[in-house]
Simulated assay, not measured.
Amino acid sequence: MTFPIRIGTRRSKLALTQSGMMQRAIGRAMGVADADLAEAVPLVEIVTTGDRVQDRRLLEIGGKALFTKEIEEALLDGRVDVAVHSMKDVPAEQPPGLCIAAVPEREDPRDAFISTNFASFDDLPMGAVLGTASLRRQAQALALRPDLKIEMLRGNVDTRLKRLADGDFDAILLATSGLNRLGFDAVIRERLSLDAFLPAPGQGALALQTREGESAAWVAALNHPLTALAVAAERGAMTALEGSCRTAIGAHAEIGEGHLRLTVEMLAPDGSARWRRAGELVDVTSAEAEEAARGLGLRLGGEVHAAAGDQRIDL
């Protein structure tokens, strides 16, 4: 791949922050001087349907692919050379002709509890109003606290924090990773446990997407093998669970002492039931480890799906 290497990105502050990080990383990998970065590795801003429509849940307008569709079209048309996505927004199957070329090292995958008046999720009073647009977070919160009132909260991070400050909610839930990358970590009152709030598959990770078959010299420098392995397991589970904005699912893989442990769950949208399975991959160093991790995810996801049945929200 020759210069310029054009990066397709959404226009939100978080997307531009994440794409700027990758712009600098690609530049370093390719030996580009900082002064030449904007010309050699330019950011191409693309407005997606998911960004334009802010007054409805994603499940009502077509799902999380609406954050990636227009950028993927630009990749296929040759208007950009690489796309930077939040991994949790990337659908389970890649469009024909595209692939995930690199997965950089992951940020904190936990959900963040943010509130003006309450120090923790457990401190919320009876009937408190909790803001989130995530069906998974809604179901997990209601599983622990069925008395809570869940109200939809969409928009960029600034918008969501302003609505909290304006008193529209007693608390809101966001991804810790995005707040960390934006330098907003001071607003976090509690980082929620990975057990109670199992994250979305790929949460905290980024996906660098390119056209299939194009070799890029920067890929090896930006890919973090252990993160890629964990994400492969989680996305395998997502595939088996038919994960979308219409299903409340979580999946998280942790790697330590030479093995990978994956936990997968599906919840009833109202939090009244949750089904969970966990399993391990004992060899994370083999050449087939990524394929084996995906296979573990497919198996555990299949077991959860068989136990839970169809838990999709009907539109």
Rank of each mutant, 00 (worst) to 15 (best):
V47Q: 14
C99N: 10
G8T: 04
P104V: 09
E190N: 11
R52L: 15
E303S: 08
L16H: 08
V53Y: 05
P146Q: 13
A217I: 04
F67I: 03
L43C: 08
E39A: 13
I255E: 01
H224W: 03
A102G: 05
L174S: 09
S272M: 07
T2K: 13
V84R: 08
D168S: 12
D81C: 03
A175E: 13
R274L: 12
R163W: 01
T49W: 00
E214I: 15
T116M: 14
E60W: 00
N223Q: 06
A139M: 06
A253W: 01
A92D: 11
T263Y: 06
A141N: 05
L58A: 11
L58C: 02
A240V: 01
D147M: 06
V264L: 10
V47P: 01
D185V: 06
M266F: 01
A306R: 13
A74V: 00
K13R: 15
E105H: 09
Q138S: 14
G97W: 03
M22N: 07
A133P: 07
D310E: 04
A186R: 13
G78E: 05
I313E: 08
D51R: 10
G309P: 05
M238Q: 14
A165D: 13
L296P: 03
K162V: 14
V304G: 09
T227G: 07
A143M: 10
V41I: 14
F67V: 11
C99M: 15
R160T: 05
A237W: 00
E257N: 15
V282I: 10
L130D: 05
G271A: 07
L66D: 05
L194A: 12
L59W: 12
L14K: 06
L229F: 02
E93K: 14
T210N: 04
A306C: 03
A221G: 07
A143T: 03
T2V: 08
L192M: 15
E60C: 04
A207D: 06
G213H: 06
R57Y: 12
L198Q: 07
I46K: 02
G295F: 02
D166G: 01
E39Q: 14
R276D: 06
G183S: 08
